[in-house]
Amino acid sequence: MVIVSVNESKCKGCALCVSACPKKIMKLSDKANQSGQYVAVCSDPPSCIGCKCCGIICPDDAITIEKED
């Protein structure tokens, strides 16, 4: 089980994680942060394979990934 958590105040809605995710499950939510940017969200956690691409490409350290060992 992998949990991708997005820090909503740091996320700027650039969607690079959306394009980088090989499973196409990172999406921009319809929730805006206080800067008015639609923050990213992992839309289907069970499908996440823990490849960390979303974290690696994120320019703003908004993504932390945890994995149940």
Partner: peptide, 26 residues
């Protein structure tokens, strides 16, 4: 739960002024 990806200790939590998607952050 083990953290497998997180912010580097090199960077602090000051909000960066870069535009969304700017590669400087990377």
């Amino acid at each position: 739960m083990a953290v497998i990806y997180q912010k580097s200790a090199y960077l602090n939590d000051v909000k960066r002024h870069y535009c969304p998607g700017c590669s400087h952050g990377i």
